[in-house]
């Protein structure tokens, strides 16, 4: 099936099998490998991207469901060689160790700050319930999001 989607500002038209998952399409067809596959069961959030302004788990969507969609992945956040404030926050506050969950964490944090620009500690933890990190113990991730809220 033919699908057309705008990814990080550029339009892509591709022929995909109807069973192709969106995350496969992004990684294997469009070579955008910043989006990760973790659990592959919509639990861990490593595959989080933004579709039409909403954070979603791209392992649980079919590419054909996103025909005509506007998509932002981790590769699309920085602009003009300047990191996005959330990316800066994760660097500044050491919000990552191995980095595997980080693209999903950052995209989910983007959604939170869109809806709630000044979240409390508890609101950050609640908003990131769908994203697992097995390194940091989350404290530095919360600080990273707070840093981003204060510096955007």
């Amino acid at each position: 099936m033919q699908v057309t989607m705008t990814v990080n500002g550029a339009s892509f038209t591709s022929d995909v099998e109807s069973r192709t998952l969106l995350v496969q399409h992004l990684r294997d067809n469009l070579n955008l490998t910043g989006t990760h596959v973790g659990c592959d069961t919509s639990s861990c959030g490593a595959c989080t991207i933004v579709v039409n302004g909403e954070a979603v788990k791209s392992c649980t969507l079919l590419a054909v469901q996103c025909n005509g969609a506007e998509i932002t992945t981790i590769e699309g956040l920085a602009s003009n060689n300047a990191l996005h404030p959330i990316q800066e926050g994760f660097r500044e506050k050491h919000g990552l160790q191995c980095g595997f969950c980080t693209p999903g964490m950052i995209m989910a944090s983007w959604q939170l700050l869109e809806r709630n620009p000044n979240p409390s500690d508890g609101e950050i933890r609640h908003a990131l319930e769908g994203n697992f990190c097995r390194c940091t113990g989350y404290d530095n991730i919360v600080k990273a999001v707070q840093w981003a809220a204060q510096n955007s």
Partner: peptide, 9 residues
């Protein structure tokens, strides 16, 4: 239900 991403979709 679930988490933010699941509730979005």
């Amino acid at each position: 239900i679930g988490d933010v991403q699941v509730r979005n979709r």
